[in-house]
Structures are given as structure tokens and as C-alpha cells.
């Protein structure tokens, strides 16, 4: 059952249309990420759900009730900000209990809920500290506990991991997801980091120029990108311009060779794409072979990233490092294998 519904949402700042006809339905307990580059409108959508921005048009409903006319403090929404936004004058416990105090919850109940929340985020002994006495990761955990304490209907996360260092980011994203699953709270997560979006979400909305380009599971977004933008933005991609030889059989001529896609294609030229992990050194066991000359070999430890010039296009691919197989040398001519089914046909 749909819990959060966003219909035909629009937002303009003066002449700039920042969000254009945005639609999204989120199930109860679902974790949905809004993924996109800076300026794509993802934060604006989140802020409209929170009530900090008024939509120019459209409807936002939570549990069937239209909330567009409600003020932010009337929406029962929890929000975690990129900059933590903990109240510097309050201790950790007072921060976590702030929402409950505002609601007029009895003191004993606040204390119990604060203790529960601090235990949930793994900081049960830090209730008496001030925000300046905590690390970035701890501050963001407290911000999460503060947002969850009043039991909001929806949790909004506005790039909560962006200000943290890489190691803390990875551990905290796992913690956030575990807490979200444990509480079963409907969550919208805004990020520009594809790895975060893919690893944490039930579904991902890829946004581009104010429009939701694609909504799907992380698997669908990565393996079946609906547009050229999605394919380019999510993961690394090799773009290959191809000439269609037989549209009905999907027979194309690529730089370095030919491929039979086995599905109908438009006549003329098409843009194909291949993920680096789909390409293999040597054509053995693959139905498509392309010939190229090695131009770059980057040794990254467990993985070796190689670039090959196919004569008009560059194909990047990864191969695992094994101690008994030597990596190819720059200048060497090699055969690269891939399966035609793994080639994506991109649309604009």
C-alpha cells in the first residue's frame, strides 16, 4: 500500500523550473533514494516533502492525507541534515529529547525514549556531552536519534553522509539501513553518491534536470538504465557508437568488430554501452569479439583497469589480478570478448 504519494510536483524559483512533473509512490517501510548530480532538484523535492519549500504545483500525501498546506512542524516528519544541525546549547540527551519536549511528553517518558534512542545508535553513555565534544560520525548518529525519537511518519535524510570521511561513511550507511529496517520507517534519502544509493535503497529515483529519469531497484537502475543519462551517471560505462547493419536481427558494426544483439534496432546509427565488468580479455566463452590495442594499464591491487583503443572508441575494462597471469602491455594488440546481451542500447 502506498504510504507517501507525490503527484505532479513542480517547483520554480523565478523563471527556473527546478522540479518538473515529479511523481513518486513510496510503500510503508520502504527506503527510497533520490540520486542525481548537484542542481538536479533532489533536495528541493525533499524540502517540499518536509514543508520547507512550497510546491508551485502538485500534491504530497502521507498516509492518504494531503500535507501541502501543513507547516513543517505539523507534518510529523523526521529529518537529518548534511550539517548535523544539532543544537549547540543542548546536551546529546536534550537534543534527542527536544522533539518530545516540544510535544509536551512527560519527563519520565522522554528520559526512557532518549535512553532507548541512544542505545539504538550505540552511544548510550554520551547523553551528557555537548555536540562539540563529539566526532562527526557521532554527531550524525545523534541527529538520527533526534529525528527518530518523536516517532515520525516519514524519515528524510538530506545527504547525511556527505560531511563524513570515507570509512565512517561506509559504516554509518550500514547502521542507518539497519536502524531503518529495524524500525520499519518509510525513508527518503537524498544523495549524489551512487554507491550509497545502490547499496542502501529498496528503490532508487535517478533525477536529471528536475525530472525523475528512472525509478527502479538498484539492480534495474544499474543493469537496465532507461536513459543515456542514467547509464552515464550510475556506474562506469563504455559508450560505443554503432552502425546498424540488419535492424531486424540487431546486427551492428562496432569499432573493432561486429555484434549480433538478437533484438530489433532502429535503422541508421545507435549508441551502445558496456559496463567494464562485462568485458573480458580474450574472446573465449563470449559471443562477441572486438579487436583493440592496449593504451593504458592501471594496477589497482586486486583489480587491474585496462583501456584499449578499438579504432574510434576507447573501451575500459577490469580484470582481476592473479599472480600467475601477467597483465597485458601497453601497445599490445588483443581480443576483447563480451556477450551481445550485455550491450545496452541507450536512448536520450
Amino acid at each position: 500500500m502506498t504510504f507517501l504519494t507525490i503527484e505532479h510536483l513542480e517547483k520554480s524559483f523565478g523563471p527556473n523550473r527546478v522540479v518538473k512533473d515529479f511523481n513518486l509512490s513510496v510503500e510503508k517501510g520502504e527506503f527510497v533514494s533520490l540520486l542525481g548530480p548537484s542542481g538536479c532538484g533532489k533536495t528541493t523535492v525533499l524540502r517540499m516533502v518536509a514543508g520547507f519549500e512550497a510546491p508551485s504545483a502538485g500534491r504530497i500525501a502521507i498516509d492518504g492525507a494531503d500535507v501541502v498546506r501543513l507547516r513543517p512542524n505539523q507534518r510529523n516528519i523526521g529529518m537529518v541534515f548534511q550539517a548535523y544541525a544539532l543544537f549547540p546549547n543542548l546536551t546529546v540527551a536534550q537534543n534527542v529529547g527536544f522533539g518530545l519536549k516540544v510535544k509536551g511528553t512527560p519527563r519520565a517518558e522522554i528520559a526512557a525514549r532518549v535512553a532507548e534512542m541512544l542505545a539504538l545508535i550505540g552511544l548510550p553513555d554520551l547523553g551528557g556531552r555537548y555536540p562539540f565534544q563529539l566526532s562527526g560520525g557521532q554527531q550524525q548518529r545523534v541527529a538520527l536519534a533526534r529525528a527518530l525519537a518523536p516517532k515520525p511518519q516519514v524519515l528524510l535524510l538530506d545527504e547525511p553522509l556527505s560531511a563524513l570521511d570515507a570509512k565512517v561513511r561506509v559504516s554509518l550507511r550500514n547502521e542507518i539501513r539497519a536502524i531503518q529496517r529495524e524500525l520499519g520507517i518509510t525513508t527518503i534519502f537524498v544523495t549524489h553518491d551512487q554507491e550509497e544509493a545502490l547499496s542502501m535503497s529498496d528503490r532508487v529515483v535517478v533525477m536529471h534536470q528536475g525530472v525523475a529519469d528512472q525509478v527502479g531497484t538498484p539492480f534495474e537502475i544499474y543493469n537496465q538504465p532507461a536513459t543515456r543519462f542514467v547509464a552515464n551517471f550510475v556506474g562506469t560505462l563504455n559508450i560505443l557508437e554503432a552502425e546498424v547493419i540488419d535492424p531486424s536481427l540487431g546486427h551492428v558494426r562496432l569499432p573493432g568488430g561486429q555484434a549480433r544483439l538478437g533484438r530489433p534496432l532502429p535503422t541508421g546509427r545507435v549508441t551502445l554501452a558496456a559496463r567494464p565488468e562485462m568485458v573480458k580479455l580474450g574472446a573465449e566463452g563470449r559471443d562477441t569479439a572486438l579487436q583493440g590495442r592496449i593504451t593504458e594499464v592501471d594496477f589497482l591491487g586486486s583489480v587491474i583497469r585496462i583501456r584499449a583503443d578499438l579504432g574510434g572508441a576507447v573501451l575500459a575494462f577490469d580484470t582481476f589480478n592473479t599472480s600467475h597471469a601477467r597483465p597485458p602491455r601497453v601497445g599490445e594488440t588483443v581480443q576483447l570478448g563480451l556477450n551481445a546481451a550485455d550491450l545496452l542500447v541507450l536512448q536520450d
Binding site: A50, F52, N73, F81, A85, F87, G99, V102, P150
Partner: peptide, 11 residues
Amino acid sequence: TLTEAAQSLGA
């Protein structure tokens, strides 16, 4: 941000 954080907590 502090204002928005407080608003989201019902203040």
C-alpha cells in the same frame, strides 16, 4: 538549518 531542524521536530 537549526531553524529547519527545530521545525521538523515540531517546534
